[in-house]
């Protein structure tokens, strides 16, 4: 683990990173899978007449924002596992912290995500803490915002993660 945060890493705090378009278009299959996983019978996601009447057409559950940006586990030509939330994995590597967990998550929702949308996102490292000793190990907390827009440039939400990157305690 690095005892001092490199200046090159500090310089990236607050800068938009990793602009990307979602690999998948917003589609019904994942919406149904998500609702089924938590037995969510909200008719907005199941009943076309209700969704037409209330939200002007089928939409995705707001909390699915991050789902549209997780990469396929494998794709042709890839030589290693693709990782989501790239800034998080960048920080693990740059700060030499092999383990990490997400401790806090804040979501804010703008325009609804609609069937057929192809979303765009970028990531912003908001902060990196001093070294902390925790029950899991020694490491640092960091906050990363993922900002989402739709294909029309409308704001659809922000997913803000607080993570702990750490080296496990001995024993």
């Amino acid at each position: 683990m690095l005892e001092i945060i490199p200046e090159a890493v500090k310089a990236l705090i607050g800068k938009p990173l990793h602009h990307e378009d979602s690999e998948i278009v917003v589609e019904s299959g994942y919406i149904y899978n998500t609702c089924a996983a938590v037995q969510n019978g909200n008719p907005l996601f199941w009943d076309e007449a209700v969704s037409n009447s209330i939200s002007g057409g089928k939409i995705a559950p707001p909390t699915m924002l991050s789902t549209w940006f997780r990469p396929h586990h494998w794709r042709p030509g890839s030589e290693e596992e693709c990782t989501p939330l790239q800034a998080h994995f960048d920080l693990k590597r740059w700060l030499q912290l092999p383990e990490a967990i997400i401790s806090d998550n804040e979501l804010r929702f703008g325009e609804p995500v609609r069937l057929g949308d192809r979303l765009h996102s970028y990531q912003v490292i908001r902060s990196i803490s001093d070294i902390k000793q925790t029950k899991l190990g020694r490491g640092r907390f960091w906050v990363i915002d993922v900002v989402y827009e739709n294909q029309d440039g409308e704001y659809v939400g922000t997913d803000s993660y607080t993570a702990l990157g750490y080296v496990r305690n001995e024993g």
């Binding site: 019978g41 707001p62 909390t63 699915m64």
Partner: peptide, 18 residues
């Protein structure tokens, strides 16, 4: 994390309605 968010979303909208 996203699944916990989905459970909490369900808790809210089961109560509020769509």
């Amino acid at each position: 994390t996203p699944n916990q968010a989905a459970w909490l979303e369900r808790l809210i909208t089961d109560w509020s309605g769509p």
